[in-house]
């Protein structure tokens, strides 16, 4: 689950999770859910996802940009994302979903990119927290 952030021209989300792997997985799912109705997406295909960075912030931006590329270029809608390996420099995992079918899948929002604006990734006493603003 995630919380939507209000922003004049753009939109963002906040996610929390017990660990960084779940945080990155939930953030990826939040990105898909802002762009599409996720209810009708079925888990028929698996795709490998990976990104690198030099700190948690850059890693999250690069990871979400990879998910956006899968949605927009490979036209694969992801219902569920899991992270198998994560460090502040590299993340890898898998996305489960199906090819975009205009008859069954409804787009809600065009997401152009993932920004560093007001970006937060941090470990708090109650768990991991991220805040991301997207350009739409």
């Amino acid at each position: 689950m995630f919380e939507v952030i209000e922003h004049t021209a753009d939109i963002g989300f906040r996610v929390t999770a017990p660990g960084p792997g779940e945080l990155f997985a939930r953030a990826a799912e939040a990105l898909v859910a802002l762009g599409f109705e996720t209810e009708p997406i079925e888990e028929r295909e698996v795709c490998e996802l990976a990104a690198t960075g030099w700190d948690w912030e850059s890693l999250l931006v690069n990871w979400l940009s990879e998910v956006l590329y899968v949605l927009d270029a490979r036209r694969l809608l992801l219902k569920r994302v899991e992270v198998t390996q994560i460090s502040p420099e590299a993340v890898s995992g898998r996305g489960y979903g199906e090819p975009w079918n205009a008859e069954r899948h409804r787009a809600k929002l065009i997401i152009k990119g993932v920004t560093y604006h007001q970006l937060v990734v941090e470990q708090r006493p109650e768990g991991w927290y991220a805040q991301v603003i997207l350009d739409t």
Partner: peptide, 28 residues
């Protein structure tokens, strides 16, 4: 959109080499 994404990633990494510090990373 992808060109902007690619170069933002490259520049946020390269900025250290040029000793540029910014109040907002999106200004990379």
């Amino acid at each position: 959109h992808q060109v902007c994404t690619d170069y933002l990633a490259e520049m946020t990494a390269a900025m250290k080499r040029y000793n540029i510090t910014l109040p907002d990373r999106q200004l990379a």
